[in-house]
Structure formats: structure tokens, C-alpha cells
Simulated assay, not measured.
Amino acid sequence: MDRAEKGKIIEGLKDRAERAQVAIVTDFQGLSVAQLTPLRAKLHEAGCDYQVVKNTLARLAFSQTPHNVLGEKLKYSCAVAFGYDDPVVAAKVVVEFAKKNDKFSVRCASLNGKLLDEAAVKALSDLPSREQLLAQVLGTMNAVPQNFVCLFANVLRGMLNVLSALKEKKEQE
């Protein structure tokens, strides 16, 4: 590989790392390309990228990005999953794949420049996704006015019952 090709790879990794909120370093030693294809497909569906990286080139690319904390963790054969919009989605896909494949593991990650160990990545994958959180917030925001309307409807219903009772009492007299 000549210097120009290496420069292109470094620029591509740097671009992905700058756009990514999370970069998850994985160990795939012992897995074939065919065995990694389902992981790539799931990550692609989720709007994420997965790239096998050459450690020295990745260290150079990450050194100029918020994910520079990963530099010393890039050893042996590794690949990086980049999550752009929602870091939880990338973590969920990678951790789920690691549960199904014994030869695949999560080493560490960088979340907006903060180093996460394997346990923290698993904890991140247990969080609800962005869409789920938004749905919960909207449900809570909708519940407040709905409860307010129900409260006033019950007050009006009670008032109507009192007036009906008064009307019946006056009609009987």
C-alpha cells in the first residue's frame, strides 16, 4: 500500500470519527468476512458504519478527532463501529452480536471523547434508544393536559350531579 492510499484511508477514518458520536472498538479474531456480514448489515440498517482498521492508520486518524482516547486501545486485529445519530443503537447492535458469537467481543468505546470500557458499552446498550426516549417524553407531556381535562370533567360532572339532585328535590316539593 503506497502513501496516497494510506492518506485516503486516514482521511476516511478521520471523517467518520469526526461525524460519529460513538466509536466502538471490537475484536473479531477468528471470524470470517461471511460471519461478519450480518453485523455489517444490521449496523448499516441502523445508520452506522463498521470498518476493519489498520491500527497505525486508525491511531493517526483518531489523533485529530474527539475519539483520540482510543489510540492506545487499538492493538491486534480490531474493527470500529461508528454510530452517528444515536450512540445507543450502535451499542445495542454490537453487544447483541457479541452475545451470539463467542469469537467476537467489545473492547472499549469512545462516547463523544470519553473512554468507555466493555461494561460501560453493555450498560449503554441497555438504555432505551432515542426514539423510545422521545416517545416516553411525549407520552408524559400528553398525560399532563389529559389529566387536567379529566380533572375538570369530573368537577363539572359532580356539579351537574348536585344540580340534578337539587332539581329533583325541588320537583318533589
Results as ranks from 00 to 15, higher is better:
Val95Trp: 03
Val149Phe: 10
Asp86Tyr: 11
Pro87Ile: 04
Asp117Leu: 04
Leu134Pro: 00
Cys150Tyr: 10
Asn142Gly: 11
Lys122Met: 04
Asp86Met: 08
Pro87Phe: 01
Asp85Phe: 11
Ser77Thr: 09
Ala90Thr: 12
Ala81Asp: 02
Val93Trp: 04
Ala109Ile: 09
Lys92Tyr: 09
Lys103Phe: 02
Phe62Met: 08
Phe97Ile: 09
Val88Lys: 04
Phe62Gln: 06
Leu138Ile: 14
Phe62Asp: 02
Ala81Ser: 08
Lys73Thr: 09
Asn101His: 15
Ser105Phe: 10
Phe152Lys: 03
Ser105Val: 00
Phe82Arg: 01
Leu116Gly: 05
Ala123Pro: 03
Cys150Lys: 13
Glu118Ser: 11
Asn147Ser: 07
Ala120His: 04
Phe62Ile: 12
Lys114Ala: 08
Leu111Ser: 01
Ser105Cys: 12
Gly113Pro: 03
Ala135Tyr: 15
Phe148Arg: 10
Phe82Ser: 05
Pro87His: 03
Val93Cys: 01
Asn147Ala: 14
Lys114Glu: 13
Leu138Cys: 14
Glu118Lys: 15
Lys103Trp: 01
Tyr84Ser: 02
Ser105Lys: 12
Leu133Gln: 12
Val69Asn: 08
Asn147His: 07
His67Met: 00
Phe148Gln: 06
Pro87Val: 01
Val155Phe: 06
Val149Met: 08
Lys75His: 08
Phe152Met: 13
Pro87Met: 06
Arg157Gln: 09
Val80His: 03
Val80Thr: 02
Ala123Thr: 05
Ala120Gln: 15
Ser110Pro: 00
Phe97Asp: 06
Val93Met: 09
Asp86Leu: 14
Lys73Cys: 10
Thr65Gly: 02
Ala135Ser: 09
Asn101Gln: 15
Val106Glu: 08
Gln146Lys: 11
Thr65Met: 03
Leu116Val: 08
Phe148Lys: 07
Gln136Ala: 10
